[in-house]
Design a protein around this nucleic acid. Structure first.
Lengths: 300, 300
DNA sequence: CATGTTTACGAGTGTCGTAAGAATA
DNA sequence: TATTCTTACGACACTCGTAAACATG
């Protein structure tokens, strides 16, 4: 459907070398090299910088890569639509999200959405937060659900909401009786934290530094569901955004307590899709569904 | 950049015959026929119905045509962006609009927009109202500015506003002293109308039929600016939407008088772009500019 | 010299144009 | 029979893979 030159180009951009792309594509490196030269000839500008250890995109190359990724997805979508005859209300939605959201939040969203569209399949990729937007940009997933991180990657943000951070504890915990907490309140109790690569941990660290509070950290885990269960057993206070733990709270298994003056604790939860991509109907529906849901959740 | 098969396919779709496309493309009909067969093989479904006088798209073919038109524009845009290096803030904006809007409204919009972007060029195509959306859909223009007509053509509507219809007359006209008019009021005076293929004429005819009023029509013209000048000389009452005549009113050359209970007189003015197309930055800017402008005009 | 890209060249594939065949009013 | 699409076939162009040449830390 699209010229091979673009496929080759894209794979070299991904892998960063002609030989690498050659192996993955089962195409001779010479052929790939020639096609890329042809593209550069056509656009009258180099698309890669030739470095000793491979090739990296020039700004012009970046533009072409963005276009090509979009073009392949578009072509794929229209082919599915034409072949499938049906307006693609069945299909697979590919999602990248972080570990903290994959548990309760994504499960709920998938469950509710499948009540509307029973034929939907979800492919959920749990990856490190900075990689979510990258995967969206490169078209490896249709939708990214992530807390915004510093690096601005050019993706389309369907919706962005400010999300608070709350302390999660056993219902009998002494602090469960309090309406609002400060970081200093927690200093006397054991706490459980996520790993430093999470956005959740980052806002907690920042807040502790600002208040000069040193927490009594008894557990650090990259598995947020594990932290929640640890908190449920009374082992420690954990942290989360309200949407990440909703069912546990409503079921009475845990209680959540907000912090006073919470703004420094806020993170931005984003629904991301590829910039300028025409989404398949199903994916578009789900992105709107998500946006509505978290739009409602913001009131929580 | 894109495979020839798609170019051939699209031209056959446009022209409606292989031989016709063969002439325009300077490619043998056999080659075109073969490429189209290949596409149909690839999608495992016919894209054209073979009629005795040529070929017409099947529903599957329509989908592919929509995709292909989009794909070619996208490819063109990205190529310009890569080559031009600059972020394409100079360039040409192609617009299709109706005769009534091309005069005052488009001139104003183009003039104001060029104050922001002096390097902009406009290609304005004045065509019959039903063709505006078609041209947008087929990618012959970037933006369509049209009053909505019955046939729903799948284009993206950037903005839609309800626009009233007013009577236009010389400042000394007896009716100029009235605040609101009815159709019956006009029966005693000569009026000038646009041709029946215009949306303006259609709403007037409908309203006259509803009220059972017979107008004293002294002029019918397909050139709305001519009708305005005729009204200005006192020859007749003409009709227009407020935005079509704004400068003439503000300059005091003509006066506009609204009708009582005007809703049946409303038309929907639409800013249209190709569905799901990623607009070049310049075009996107202009479409937003237009939307803002007519958004403001609605209060008029 | 190890790694990675580009050029040279023969083999294979695909596309094109001419011309003949088939379908339809 | 006039128009249009499709198939047959030889000529040409393009792409590929192997292998050698080139660039660089």
């Amino acid at each position: 459907m699209l010229p091979n030159a673009l496929r080759y180009f894209l794979e070299v951009a991904r892998i960063g070398s002609v030989n690498g792309a050659s192996e993955r594509l089962h195409v001779a490196g010479s052929a790939i090299s020639r096609q890329i030269s042809a593209l550069e000839m056509q656009f009258e500008t180099p698309l890669f910088e030739r470095k000793p250890r491979g090739m990296v995109l020039t700004p012009a190359g970046e533009k072409l890569a963005d276009y090509a990724r979009r073009a392949f997805l578009d072509a794929e979508d229209v082919a599915a639509e034409i072949r499938g005859r049906v307006d693609t209300l069945r299909g697979t939605i590919r999602i990248a999200t972080s570990e903290g959201l994959a548990n309760v939040f994504m499960s709920e969203m998938a469950y509710f959405f499948r009540e509307k569209y029973p034929e939907v399949r979800f492919d959920i990729h749990v990856v490190a937060p900075p990689n979510i937007a990258l995967m969206v940009r490169e078209g490896e997933v249709d939708i990214g659900i992530a807390f915004a991180v510093g690096t601005p990657i050019p993706v389309h943000v369907v919706r962005r909401v400010r999300v608070t951070t709350v302390a999660i504890m056993h219902p009998n915990h002494p602090l469960a009786a309090r309406d609002h907490l400060t970081m200093a309140d927690l200093a006397n109790y054991p706490v459980a934290l996520s790993t430093p690569d999470t956005t959740l941990r980052q806002v907690i660290d920042m807040r502790c530094a600002a208040e000069g509070v040193l927490l009594n950290v008894v557990m650090v885990s990259s598995h947020s569901a594990g932290l929640m269960h640890f908190a449920r057993q009374g082992g420690a206070i954990a942290f989360a955004s309200p949407i990440s733990v909703r069912t546990w709270i409503t079921d009475g298994l845990l209680v959540a307590r907000p912090f006073v003056e919470d703004t420094a604790f806020n993170r931005s939860l984003e629904i991301q899709t590829m910039a300028a991509r025409k989404l398949p109907r199903l994916v578009d529906d789900f992105s709107r569904f998500l946006a509505d849901e978290i739009g409602g959740q913001i009131a929580l």
